[in-house]
Amino acid sequence: MATTPDPQRHDVVFEEPTGPLAVPGVGAVVESEFASVSVRLDQSGNSVRLRVEDLRTGRVRFLDALELESIVWLEDGHLTQLLDPSHERWRG
């Protein structure tokens, strides 16, 4: 429907939040307007790991069970420090 709206008349929009995403070959995507990562289980090693990919750069990190457990136990303050852009990625 490519009609030009009459600027004198009212228009209606339904404001929908974004839904869940599972992209074939990429896995489940955890995404917000600030970041986009895919997560899937990787079984190529001797224990199962989580494969996390930053979809905006293609950088991949594997997280093993102990690393994931450590993230669960991270103090909020430490997690917040990791979010400081100067902490690692834009330290230069």
């Binding site: 929908e16 939040p17 974004t18 917000s32 307007e33 600030f34 970041a35 917040t80 979010l83």
Partner: peptide
């Protein structure tokens, strides 16, 4: 800062 209508994020970049 925020552009989406809604989301879940502990921080905004």
């Amino acid at each position: 800062v925020c552009d989406d209508k809604a989301g879940n994020s502990s921080s905004f970049r």
